[in-house]
C-alpha cells in the first residue's frame, strides 16, 4: 500500500451505505404505515415533525431489564451500546470510567452478578436480567465500604480516575480468594492500570481489607 492511500473500505462503499439506507427506510416505512393504520391523524402530523426518524430509532432499540445498584431499570438500548456507555451516558452513573474502551485498562470494571467484568467489552443488551453493581452502589448510604475506607487510609490513588475500577476489582479480588499475599494481589490486580502509580498503596489497602476478614 502506498503511503498516500488510505486503507480501502472493507465493503463496497456505496453498497454499504445503500444497504444501511434500505434497512432504515424499510423500518421507517413499515413502522410508519403500521402506525398510520392505527391512528392516522396525529401520526401524520408527527411525521411532518420527523417523528418517523424517532419511530425507526424505536425499532432499533432492544428492551433490557437490569438491576443496577439494587434498583430495577427497564430500558431500551441500541444493540451496539456498551454497558459502560449505558451507565455513563444514559444513566448518569459516571463513577464507572472510560479509560480505553478496548478492555485494556480496567477503569470500567463493574460487578455483574457479583463477578468483576469490563463494562466496555460488555454489550448492554447482553446483561438482561442481571444484577450490576457499580462504584456508586458499593457504600451503604453514608457508610463507606471497607475497601473504600482502606483506599482513603492508604492513599491508594492520586488523580482518582482509575480508582472506581481499582476498588471494584479489589473487592472482587478479595471475594475470589486472590488476596492472600502481596504478590497474589499484584497478579490479580494487574488488569487495572493506574498511571499515577499508586500500586504500592493499593496493595496495602487490599491486604488490610483481606486481613480484616470482614464479609465484604
Amino acid at each position: 500500500m502506498q503511503p498516500d492511500q488510505q486503507p480501502p473500505c472493507p465493503h463496497e462503499e456505496n453498497a454499504c451505505d445503500h444497504k444501511h439506507d434500505d434497512r432504515r427506510t424499510f423500518l421507517k416505512k413499515s413502522s410508519f404505515l403500521a402506525a398510520v393504520a392505527l391512528t392516522p391523524a396525529p401520526l401524520i402530523k408527527a411525521a411532518e415533525k420527523k417523528a418517523d426518524e424517532k419511530i425507526a430509532a424505536y425499532f432499533e432499540t432492544v428492551p433490557v431489564n437490569l438491576e443496577i445498584n439494587g434498583k430495577q431499570h427497564s430500558l431500551k438500548v441500541e444493540p451496539r451500546t456498551t454497558l459502560l456507555d449505558l451507565l455513563r451516558e444514559q444513566l448518569d452513573l459516571t463513577g464507572t470510567k472510560k479509560g480505553c474502551d478496548w478492555g485494556q485498562c480496567g477503569a470500567c470494571t463493574v460487578h455483574v452478578n457479583g463477578k468483576r467484568v469490563l463494562s466496555c467489552l460488555s454489550l448492554a443488551v447482553m446483561q438482561d436480567g442481571k444484577k450490576i453493581t457499580t462504584i456508586e452502589g458499593l457504600a451503604s448510604g453514608e457508610q463507606l465500604h471497607p475497601m473504600q475506607e482502606a483506599f482513603i487510609k492508604y492513599d491508594g490513588f492520586q488523580c482518582g480516575y482509575c480508582t472506581p475500577g481499582q476498588i471494584m476489582s479489589a473487592v472482587a479480588c478479595v471475594r475470589e480468594g486472590h488476596a492472600h499475599s502481596e504478590d497474589q494481589i499484584r497478579e490479580y490486580m494487574s488488569g487495572n492500570i493506574c498511571r499515577c502509580g499508586a500500586y504500592r498503596n493499593i496493595v496495602d489497602a487490599i491486604s488490610e481489607v483481606n486481613k480484616g476478614g470482614q464479609n465484604i
Binding site: A139, L144, I152, I167
Partner: peptide, 21 residues
C-alpha cells in the same frame, strides 16, 4: 491528613471533564 477529596474519588462522585451533566 487524608485527601480532602478522597471520599468523592472512592465513591464515584468526583466529576471529571466529560461527566458533567
Amino acid at each position: 491528613m487524608d485527601r480532602v477529596d478522597g471520599k468523592m474519588k472512592v465513591t464515584g462522585a468526583a466529576k471529571y471533564a466529560s461527566e458533567h451533566p
